[in-house]
Amino acid sequence: MDADRSRHLLEQVNQALNLGTPLRIQGGNSKAMLGRPVAGEIVDLREHRGILSYHPSELVLTARAGTPLREIEAALEQAGQMLTCEPPHLGPHATLGGMVAAGLSGPRRPWAGAVRDLVLGTRLISGHGKQLRLGGEVMKNVAGYDVSRLMAGSFGCLGLLTEISLKVLPKPRQCLSLRLPMPAQQALAALAQWGQQALPISAACHADDALHLRLEGGPGSVRSAHERLGGEVIDNHFWQQLREQRLAFFDDPAPLWRLSLPVATGLLELPGQQLLDWAGAQRWLKSTAPAALIRERVAKVGGHATAYSPGDHSSAPLAPVLLRYHQALKAQLDPQGLFNPGRLYADL
């Protein structure tokens, strides 16, 4: 059955190549609100699922792209391990392939790395109708750039992911979450100061006029940090609620924006409500302001803005040199523009 499913995917890609038919790749569709709409024949990966190999002592897991994230996280939980990037599901049917294609990371990202940092290797079907294996299944340093990591955040524009090998790590021995009432500006100043010190912080968010911190590590270091920082102990479930956009902040019916900013950026003057995540490097904005205004003000401080609400599918334009790199890469892996055409940018 598994070999039949892989063969069917390859046949579907080659048939689309022969007919010149674009393909719209989808898994659980939990990230469908991101990017531009794609017209094309649907390639549904949800049946191409299953964990292929997982040996906890080797800290590597390999699974098919359609494997539900909840199954992978359940297997890791049994072994006391985790995906350190804390990928958002944003829906009950999120898949491993969608996690890599979207490249989204949760609250731990500044301290533990992004999705691309976990990718060791991939198998994919290219726009030439060939099966490719990129990277490997072991943790080792190699010269040059690992092409498999280019798949992270590509939104399926470079190829059809079929298998992914990931680095996993043990869960921390101790986890403690705190709430410290303070205004946003004071929180940013405190985080800038604490960032220069040896504190076991693994998440930092300002919401509801309070700074929320997560401390992780050995019991002694967590206890010492708590004594130093103070604050009210809260349920660790807060971070899952943040990751899955279930906090009260996200109930506001205004359009949702994700702002990615340089470290130590001050408060932004933008209409609407803001929630600070990643110690301020990621901010969530609920605003009815025009997209052009939001993107202009974010760009002035060296950041970029992504719309998370349906209706605004425009992307901030790439610098000409970056656009050429994107187009050259697309031409190498998908010369006929078969996969998710225009999902990221109209010219890709």
Rank of each mutant, 00 (worst) to 15 (best):
L96S: 08
V168D: 04
G231M: 05
L199G: 05
L268R: 08
P335R: 00
V60Y: 02
E269W: 11
A254T: 12
F238P: 04
V60S: 02
Q336I: 02
P56H: 09
A184L: 05
L150Y: 03
G220E: 14
V298N: 07
L323Q: 14
A101Q: 06
F339V: 06
V168T: 12
A16M: 00
L23P: 06
G231W: 06
L213V: 12
N14W: 06
R343F: 00
G303D: 08
G129N: 05
L69D: 05
V60L: 00
T21K: 03
D4Q: 15
G280M: 09
Q185K: 14
L333T: 06
M182F: 04
L76S: 10
L120D: 03
A299C: 06
G144M: 02
N18E: 13
L229A: 07
Q78H: 11
Q336V: 10
R324I: 07
V233G: 09
A316P: 05
L344I: 02
D44E: 13
A248F: 04
A289K: 07
C205Q: 09
G127H: 01
G156K: 00
E296P: 01
Q240H: 14
A319G: 15
A225V: 13
T122Q: 07
E77Q: 14
N141S: 09
A291K: 02
P317M: 10
S6H: 08
P56N: 10
